[in-house]
Design a protein around this nucleic acid. Structure first.
Lengths: 145, 145
DNA sequence: TCCTTATTGAAAATAGTTTTCAATAAGAAA
DNA sequence: TTTCTTATTGAAAACTATTTTCAATAAGGA
């Protein structure tokens, strides 16, 4: 299903600002902040309002079509999300973000945690950072820098 | 080692504002925002500047003595951290935060991810939310897992 | 107690995000 | 295509969060 249909299905319209936000995210492939997305729309001569960037990101996040990615210190930004998967792996050198599913290993962990703590775990946030294959090659040593 | 020594060891001073921030965090046991910490200092007739709250949190975070806790949407706040452990489990009802270690299960997961993606994983952020034992009891149904 | 200097707090500066509202344009219907 | 309804836009203002500046203060070693 294309973006047009995805939005129309929800009674939403595929407008120019929304199209631009989506294409910027598609072109980037790394988490981008609202400010960065706005700047890139200017760079591409597709000026849209910063306010619309915020509203579009909120809408797409609600629909599960983009995901917020966090670092330890702050929110890194937003990336397009494929539905159903919830985890990101971000390269700390080039910021490339990859999605992965790890529910099998994770459900074991969740079981252990529930036993240990007595909590009922129903939501989780798991993110990894490291070096992507390209940046590993570029780095002389394979340890950590 | 007490707080006095922990700070002095680093050439830092244990001042009244720092003492207040720490005691508010100790008393809370749940993640608190800078604003909330400030408000509680007023409530306790221990007025300190909001600016000092920010600076104290930054300092304690740098020393690894407090940790930022994130939710999917935003930063939930700061909690005291015991050194070495990195994961939090937060109750979505009462915000109680518990630390846990899950490195055994997690290292399996990390191995799998490294194989699948070719990334070198060197940092991770893992947080869970759910219901703590007390809030489970208060909740009528135990249905959804 | 004295002295050095890390730290404080008020205000101002900066940054990030949300709300308001009249004007616009998407997309369904004719 | 044209018309119509209303979701959406964008500029400005409001709001909230965070950082910087700097003179005054106080922590803790000598």
């Amino acid at each position: 299903m294309n973006w047009q249909d995805k939005l129309n299905k929800e009674g939403l319209r595929l407008t120019t600002p929304r199209r631009v936000v989506i294409s910027v995210l598609e072109a980037a492939g790394v988490p981008l902040s609202p400010q960065t997305i706005h700047q890139r729309s200017l760079d591409a001569d597709e000026e849209i309002g910063l306010v619309s960037v915020y509203r579009t990101l909120e809408m797409l996040t609600d629909l599960g079509l983009v995901r917020r990615v966090h670092g330890h210190e702050a929110c890194l930004g937003y990336v397009l999300a494929s539905p159903g998967h919830h985890h990101h792996l971000v390269c700390r050198s080039c910021s490339t973000a990859v999605e992965f599913s790890g529910m099998d290993d994770l459900s074991t962990l969740i079981d252990h945690i529930q036993e240990e703590t007595g909590f009922l775990v129903d939501e989780h946030m798991l993110q990894f950072s490291g070096l992507c294959p390209q940046c590993r090659k570029r780095t002389p040593h394979h340890d950590q820098d």
